[in-house]
Design a protein around this nucleic acid. Structure first.
Lengths: 113, 113
DNA sequence: TTCATACGACACCAAATGGTATTATAACGG
DNA sequence: CCGTTATAATACCATTTGGTGTCGTATGAA
């Protein structure tokens, strides 16, 4: 089993996939609708969507013959949580905010990868 | 020229590189010292360090024959900034905090990749 | 000077990645 | 039923990636 953030970081590493996430942040879209936004083939987009799904960054539901892709932002939170460990090093103000959150939110994961 | 977050996300995609960042968060280390923490060869670690440097996640200085690697957390901030666009979708509380930050911090980048 | 040490630079390899093209399958509309 | 549409699945290709091994260079110590 791979860690949650591994799937997320892997999916986020490709610029096309990050653009797909931006598009899905405005509305949920079928594969064909995502394809309209890019110059690559449907096959390539499909592979990206599978990787985004494996990374838990999108969820998919079937509607008839359509496959509707929806942003699943909780998956991105795992990457943010990992990164925010370093926030103390770049922004004291953000660190204070992080502390405020942590005091209310006890369920913090470790960073042992 | 590739975007700042592309270099960061690419570097963050590998679990070994994320572990290297965790180690460097405790202290700066030479290549040999990083190697001690892993089972792979020095050549592999060197490549990882180059990618981390290209992603602006570490900085390097020469000291005699040693090459000292130091965490450069500002580079990670570019990835966090990109991701926090989505924070509104997963946590209203964090969104409020983000708004509080943005009201003091006007220099926000776009997400056009 | 000589030797061990810390890197740098290659060449090389297997596997993963991003992409295409082609061929199916399945559902909706008339 | 038939044609069209939306997607799935597969084979294939070029490049990148993560890794090793080897050789070279440079610095510090004896």
């Amino acid at each position: 089993m791979i860690s949650a953030e591994q799937g997320a970081f892997r999916a986020l590493a490709d610029p096309t996939r990050r653009q797909i996430l931006m598009h899905l942040s405005t509305r949920e879209m079928t594969i064909a609708q995502v394809c309209e936004k890019f110059e690559v083939t449907r096959g390539a987009i499909k592979k990206h969507l599978v990787i985004l799904e494996e990374g838990n960054l999108i969820s998919v539901r079937r509607a008839g013959r359509e496959r509707i892709n929806r942003l699943h932002p909780q998956g991105m939170k795992s990457a943010v949580d990992w990164l925010q460990y370093f926030s103390r090093f770049w922004d004291d103000k953000l660190t204070n905010l992080e502390i405020a959150i942590n005091s209310e939110n006890k369920s913090k994961e470790s960073h042992n990868d």
